Simulated scan of single mutants.
Amino acid sequence: MSSEAATGGLNGYISHHLTHNTIQIGSGFNFDSWIVALVLGLIFVMWFGSKARKATAGVPSKGQAFVEIILEFVDGQVKDTFHGDRRSVTPLALTIFMWIVFMNTMDLIPLDLPGWLVQTVAGAEAAHHTYFRVVPTADLNTTLALSTSVFFILLGHAIAAKGGFGFGKELLTAPFHAHGPMAIVMAPVNLLMNIIEWLVKPVSLAMRLFGNMYGGELVFMLIAGLMASWFTFLPGIIANAAWAIFHILIILLQAFIFMILTVVYIAGAREGH
């Protein structure tokens, strides 16, 4: 464990690792989450772009075959869920799935590796005062940014499918369809219900992903506390390995859930009540 644990105990260790590298822009900008997410997104684009440019019709390389397996898996999920034109939906689903998998996988990096790198380069004092969280999806700002982007994409699909007038009419007339004077009375109720329904989608997407990844990160920190003592060091190693293996399932499952719910929401946005 790092020197934080030795000097401040487990609480100090966890507190240090839960602190973001924040730039004071407005209420604060978590630079570490942003830069890690950006780098991982660029890696995904360059990796898949490179395989797409080098793709051959003959016997594919192992790298091309792996990318094709992922693409076919995502496209199959989209095909089963969304029955319209998939040309824009499948690339979106692929991007969401792979980007979130990349960001979630950062949780498997040893907790003290960033601190060790800083300490190696700049010394122990610099490492003690340097904060850098490497799991972007354990930051609520990241998951809210992703879900907000999905929210506006859903609005775009709804308006594209129904037109501005049709979408506005649906907000005022569904889910409680009424006629005559009652339609006017029920319009505010319908509008309120639709606003709640639309806002719940991005909030639930963000909170589900954030909650699972934040909880997983916290468990790694608690397990790391076992390694502070020689008596519990070996149990800590075993517990850490077991949790890491189980966490791989969480990493993939949370990315899949975010992706498939996005596709389900798009399909629902294009359909009428």
Results as ranks from 00 to 15, higher is better:
1 M>F: 11
5 A>I: 08
6 A>S: 14
9 G>K: 05
9 G>Y: 03
9 G>D: 04
10 L>Q: 00
16 H>P: 05
22 T>E: 10
24 Q>V: 10
24 Q>H: 15
24 Q>K: 14
29 F>P: 10
30 N>A: 11
34 W>Q: 12
34 W>I: 14
37 A>D: 03
38 L>G: 09
38 L>T: 15
41 G>M: 07
42 L>A: 06
43 I>Q: 03
46 M>P: 05
46 M>H: 10
47 W>Y: 15
47 W>G: 00
48 F>W: 07
53 R>P: 04
55 A>D: 03
56 T>K: 14
58 G>W: 13
58 G>K: 10
59 V>I: 15
59 V>W: 10
61 S>E: 08
63 G>N: 13
63 G>T: 02
65 A>G: 09
66 F>V: 13
69 I>C: 05
71 L>F: 09
72 E>S: 14
76 G>I: 13
89 V>A: 12
90 T>P: 01
94 L>G: 07
96 I>R: 06
97 F>K: 07
99 W>D: 04
101 V>Y: 00
101 V>D: 01
106 M>R: 02
108 L>V: 13
109 I>G: 10
112 D>Q: 02
113 L>Y: 06
114 P>K: 01
115 G>E: 04
117 L>W: 04
123 G>W: 01
126 A>S: 02
127 A>I: 02
128 H>I: 05
133 R>D: 05
135 V>R: 02
135 V>F: 01
137 T>F: 04
137 T>K: 00
140 L>P: 11
141 N>L: 14
142 T>L: 08
142 T>D: 04
142 T>E: 06
145 A>Q: 08
145 A>G: 08
145 A>E: 00
147 S>M: 01
148 T>C: 12
149 S>H: 10
150 V>P: 12
151 F>D: 02
153 I>W: 09
153 I>K: 05
155 L>I: 14
157 H>Q: 10
158 A>R: 13
159 I>D: 03
159 I>K: 04
161 A>L: 13
161 A>N: 09
162 K>A: 14
164 G>S: 08
165 F>V: 15
170 E>G: 15
171 L>R: 09
173 T>G: 03
176 F>V: 06
177 H>D: 06
177 H>V: 11
179 H>D: 15
179 H>I: 14
179 H>A: 15
181 P>F: 02
182 M>G: 03
183 A>W: 01
188 P>D: 01
192 L>N: 07
194 N>T: 09
196 I>Y: 10
197 E>F: 05
198 W>L: 11
201 K>W: 06
202 P>Q: 04
203 V>A: 15
203 V>M: 14
203 V>T: 15
204 S>T: 13
205 L>V: 12
208 R>H: 12
213 M>I: 08
224 A>K: 00
226 L>R: 08
227 M>Q: 15
229 S>T: 15
231 F>Y: 08
233 F>M: 11
235 P>L: 08
235 P>C: 11
235 P>D: 10
239 A>V: 07
239 A>Q: 11
245 I>T: 15
245 I>P: 12
246 F>Y: 12
247 H>K: 09
247 H>F: 13
249 L>P: 12
250 I>R: 00
251 I>W: 00
254 Q>P: 11
254 Q>R: 12
254 Q>F: 11
257 I>C: 08
263 V>I: 13
263 V>L: 08
264 V>P: 05
266 I>C: 09
266 I>T: 07
268 G>D: 13
269 A>I: 03
269 A>Y: 08
